[in-house]
Structures are given as C-alpha cells and as structure tokens.
C-alpha cells in the first residue's frame, strides 16, 4: 500500500506533535510566525506536544509527528524511536532532519578537529557537547522510517501549512521538484550567474525559498537541498569554469545539506591538491 492510500484513514480530527532534535528551532518558528493560521489549525487538529509553542506531552500517541532537527546523541536515538513508535505518520522538516544540517559537517572531521571547532564556537570550555554524543549528525531517516519530508533551511510558513493541509486532505505533501532557476525566471530576476558571474547553486537546488538570494543579487547557497533532477557534473564544470577550485566547490555543497545523497559525489570526495 502506498503512503497516499494509507492516508485515506487519517483521523478526522488528528492529534499532532511537533518535536525538536538538534536544530536551531527556525523550522518550528515557521509554524509559529503565522500565529493566526496556527490558531486556525488548532480548531481542526489537537496539537498535543509543541514545546516551542506551549503544549507538552512528549510521548503521546499521535496521528502526525512533525520532526525538526538531526540525531546527534544516544539520547536522540532513544527519543526518535519512541516518537516513531507513538506516531502513525512522521513528517521530517528542514535541512537538519532531512540531511543532518550544518552540524553534519562534523561527519567529515575527526575528534581532534571537532574539539578545535568546539573551542572556536563556544565561549567557554564545555564537555556538554561531547558527552553522550554520537560520532555523526544524521538525518531522522537514518534511524527511523519517515513518511514525508519537507526540505529547507529553514522551511517556510506557507510550505508547512500547505503540507499539513494536504495530509489532512489525505494526500502526500507536494514536493519541491524544480530548481531555483524556475522561480528566478518566473519572478523576472536577472540570472546572477549569467549577468554577474556569481557562483550560484540554483540549477541543482530545489526551489522553495522563492529565490530569496538571487532576488538580492547573490548566488543560491542551496538551503532547500537537491532538486529532483540535478546534473552535478555540468554544475561542477560550470563552477570550475567560473574559476572556483575543487576545494571551494566542495565547501559550497558542504554548507547546509552536506549529507544529501545527490551532493555526495562532491561533499564526500577527497580533494587531491
């Protein structure tokens, strides 16, 4: 049975939980920022757990668990397994939950370098981050079955409300398929790569942000992860032609969605120089 078929029996007044794992909370804010819509939503669903917004009942049985963040600790592993066991459907949201997020950069490093990073990031010596840690930051789907995914760093309000609405209608949430270039052309944005020689990941990155960076004259950073079709060889050839080194290209794809499988050819390879 495919997922959409299963959704036919989705509860008429479903219980929803919003969980946070390792993340910045930005995706949860996408849901909170439009308070009027969230209140409207609360008239047709029961939001039983949403720490950022108030309700707390972490392991309640729910119809839909919305997950933000990546799995970084042994405690996270236990918690996501519990959440999954109590949820009929799991919707992962945001780059952390889908591809590990920025913190997954640690997956490319070792203990020594990680301690160095920690020293640079935190103002005081701390062992909090290291204790109970896994060696990696990984997406939710690396540990439990995920039914639906929404990309973005962060996701946006319209996107999450639309996805919830579609699930309530009993259909799979629509995916962001086309590249950022589509939005640029629809919005009449002059291509920053062609007109300004700005390196831009738009041709291989999924649309969803409304091309916010190209609209401001900058190249795309890749917040919404890979587009459904991404010709990585052609993209890399273009970036090289623009003068970027292998190392610079690797860093571009390391930024937000470093664990995305489509980007692995670039992000995981050893650069010989």
């Amino acid at each position: 049975m495919s997922t959409p078929d299963k959704l036919i029996n989705f509860a008429k007044r479903p219980k929803i939980a919003v969980h946070k794992f390792s993340s910045c909370d930005g995706c949860q804010l996408a849901l909170i920022n439009d308070a009027v819509s969230l209140l409207e939503l609360a008239t047709i669903v029961d939001i039983v757990h949403f720490a950022e917004a108030g309700p707390l009942d972490e392991f309640a049985e729910v119809d839909l668990a919305i997950i933000e963040g990546s799995v970084n600790t042994h405690h996270d592993v236990h918690r996501i397994e519990m959440v999954r066991a109590k949820a009929k459907y799991v919707l992962s949201v945001g780059a952390c939950a889908l591809t590990g997020g920025i913190q997954a950069l640690r997956n490319f490093t070792d203990e020594k370098e990680l301690r160095h990073w920690q020293h640079d990031v935190y103002p005081e010596e701390t062992e909090v981050i290291i204790e109970g840690d896994l060696a990696t930051a990984k997406p939710i789907s690396a540990y439990v079955k995920v039914d639906f995914e929404l990309p973005g760093c962060p996701i946006n309000t319209g996107q999450i409300l639309r996805a919830i609405r579609q699930i309530l209608f009993g259909v799979e949430p629509e995916k962001n398929v086309d590249p950022v270039c589509t939005t640029c052309k629809h919005a009449g944005v002059t291509c920053v790569m062609v007109a300004k020689n700005e390196s831009c990941l738009g041709p291989v990155v999924a649309d969803g942000c409304d091309a916010i960076c190209p609209k401001l004259g900058r190249g795309c950073y890749g917040c919404y992860g890979p587009a459904k079709y991404a010709n990585m060889d052609a993209m890399i050839a273009k970036l090289k032609e623009m003068g970027l080194s292998d190392e610079q290209i690797k860093h571009k794809f390391h930024h937000i969605n470093s664990q995305a499988i489509t980007f692995h050819g670039v992000t995981a390879r050893t650069i010989s120089q």
Partner: peptide, 24 residues
C-alpha cells in the same frame, strides 16, 4: 542542467501547470 532557463525566457514557450492553494 535541465534548469529550464531557456524555456522560461523563450517568448513563445507556453507550457503551464495548474495547482490548488487551499486555506488552512
């Protein structure tokens, strides 16, 4: 790249898709 920049900047390309945007 299959980015569609050619078709979207073409004066004659007319393909379109339709979608529904429901309220909450």
């Amino acid at each position: 790249l299959s980015c569609g920049s050619c078709t979207n900047s073409c004066p004659t390309c007319f393909c379109h898709t339709e979608r529904d945007i429901p309220n909450v």
